[in-house]
């Protein structure tokens, strides 16, 4: 396992782990039963991806439950609180579009038979991209329904898309060990998201996609305020009962 591949697996694995936990917070709170089940299923797919990726780096439980906030390499987008349902859907739209495009590229990268770590990453991407296609479709259908729905749902969806816009620039900060054309990835992402928002009668948010404070921070271990509280909840059981098992 090379250092650059460690960096790659940790960044992608932390994105999946943290978003999985956020989506899991909807259990018991989703607006309808079908969404309860849908969000839990998406969370489960992401958790499975996280387990594979973190296991490439080290012990999955230690990495998930015993690292401090500054050691996490996820983007700030995925750690943002669930907010209302529109915020969760906007976060899903931005992230699942990114993940589908990124994993699609990793899956079709040239094979390097001697390089076991890289082949593991390629295998995971090839598997996960098929699952993520369903996540993106789910987010897209809800964006259309809320954006082109009632004045209330339209306003909420618009507010959510605007609020999370400044966290989307960070997604395209190059990650060491991930050999893709990041500019092309970003252009494809923008095309895809713009098309969905347009069909949903929502304007493309106007503000900057990064700010001085948030730019590139998550991948360097700098996170937003709510992340610490999320980790405290996620880690407290494991830390309170070291070595406990079912």
């Amino acid at each position: 396992m090379t250092t650059s591949l460690n960096t790659a697996a940790l960044a992608l694995g932390d994105d999946a782990l943290v978003l999985s936990h956020r989506l899991g917070e909807w259990a018991g709170h989703a607006p309808v039963l079908e969404e309860e089940v849908a969000l839990a299923n998406i969370a489960l797919d992401l958790l499975g991806q996280a387990r594979v990726l973190l296991s490439l780096v080290g012990d999955e439980d230690e990495l998930a439950f015993l690292r401090e906030e500054r050691a996490f390499r996820n983007t700030q987008l995925v750690e943002q609180p669930n907010g209302d349902f529109a915020h969760t859907i906007a976060r899903q739209l931005y992230f699942s579009t990114y993940q589908r495009l990124l994993y699609g590229r990793l899956a079709t990268a040239d094979p390097r038979p001697g390089d076991e770590g890289r082949e593991a990453l390629r295998g995971l991407a090839a598997k996960a991209v098929k699952e993520v296609a369903y996540h993106q479709d789910h987010a897209e259908q809800w964006t259309l329904r809320l954006g082109d729905g009632t004045p209330e749902s339209h306003d909420r969806m618009r507010t959510a898309c605007d609020a999370l816009w400044r966290f989307t620039g960070e997604l395209f900060q190059p990650v060491e060990g991930v050999d893709v054309d990041w500019r092309e990835l970003e252009a494809d992402w923008l095309t895809s998201v713009s098309a969905v928002l347009d069909r949903a009668t929502l304007p493309l948010p106007e503000g900057p996609r990064t700010t001085a404070w948030s730019a590139g921070a998550g991948r360097q271990g700098v996170h937003t305020e709510s992340f610490g509280r999320m980790l405290a909840e996620m880690q407290h059981l494991h830390r309170s009962h070291p070595g406990a098992s079912w």
């Binding site: 079908e34 969404e35 089940v37 849908a38 299923n41 098929k130 369903y134 789910h138 259908q141």
Partner: peptide, 29 residues
């Protein structure tokens, strides 16, 4: 289609318009 996700990750939830029964569909992957 009622929901893209159902009782397990591999299924979606549908409803029949003829007999009105809901059912699981093993979705394509």
């Amino acid at each position: 289609l009622l929901s893209r996700f159902s009782s397990t990750a591999c299924k979606s939830l549908r409803r029949c318009a003829s007999c009105r029964e809901p059912f699981d569909h093993f979705k394509e992957l």
